[in-house]
Design a protein around this nucleic acid. Structure first.
Length: 112
DNA sequence: TGCTTGACAGAAG
DNA sequence: CCTTCTGCCAAGC
């Protein structure tokens, strides 16, 4: 018995999407978290890429602060130029190399 | 059915 | 620091 199925059923995909958006909505102003952190928290540790896919393609995701999600190194999404700009508007400062300073802005989601 | 594509992660050079 | 590779896995074609 595996801890996790090999593939998501449509039902699981729906729950995954809802859980991801729920967590993103909880990220405080001026803070960031990572794709992998979210994936692990919703129960699919190896689906970090699915988190990114969800935020990019799910209609309505714009209503959530999805710009507060960066990769684990603090890099912004390639191809999404506004990403860095939106974070800077919230006071998030970038390091000289263009990465978010994760030691200062990383936020660990809680389940409650 | 099989190969390619990423809003990722981690490691290597 | 930056590029590239491998592992990952659903989606597209």
């Amino acid at each position: 018995m595996k801890d996790y199925p090999d593939k998501m059923t449509p039902e699981e995909a729906r729950i995954f999407r809802d859980d991801v958006l729920n967590i993103v909505g909880q990220i405080p102003h001026g803070k960031v978290t990572t794709y992998g952190t979210i994936a692990a928290l919703v129960g699919w540790p190896s689906h970090s890429r699915m988190v990114g896919r969800t935020l990019r393609y799910t209609p309505g995701a714009e209503q959530y602060p999805c710009h507060r999600v960066v990769n684990k190194e603090g890099r912004t999404a390639p191809g999404w130029l506004l990403h860095r700009h939106l974070l800077e508007q919230e006071g998030v400062q970038f390091k000289a190399n263009g990465y978010v300073d994760m030691t200062r802005y990383y936020w660990e989601p809680s389940i409650d």
